[in-house]
């Protein structure tokens, strides 16, 4: 199982704060997981998750799309941060 979390503007645009997705062999990396999320949802998921300024994290560490995934990972998608 992969736990997927969405924050801030991305959470609102998707209307979803997170979901769990069964881990499959074809989810070898973050790009593959993102492709299966897009394939399973309405077209706006593609626009939102493929936007140029989306930041991704795996197990609470920033990660690029080629970051490998394994069963039990926590993945997050969020916009540029604006705290402080």
């Amino acid at each position: 199982m992969i736990k997927v979390l969405f924050f801030a503007r991305i959470r609102e645009q998707l209307g979803c704060d997170g979901l769990e997705i069964g881990f499959r062999e074809n989810m070898a990396n973050l790009a593959a997981l993102q492709a299966s999320l897009i394939a399973a949802h309405e077209p706006r998921w593609e626009q939102v998750l493929n936007a140029p300024n989306v930041i991704r994290a795996v197990n609470q560490q920033l990660a690029d799309l080629d970051h490998p995934l394994s069963d039990g990972d926590e993945v997050a998608f969020f916009p540029p941060v604006t705290g402080g």
Partner: peptide
């Protein structure tokens, strides 16, 4: 620039996410 926090401002014309 690095800690995951996000600000959303509400004003007379509605709410919007603060841009980085």
């Amino acid at each position: 620039t690095g800690a995951p926090f996000w600000k959303k401002e509400t004003g007379p014309t509605g709410a919007c996410w603060v841009e980085a």
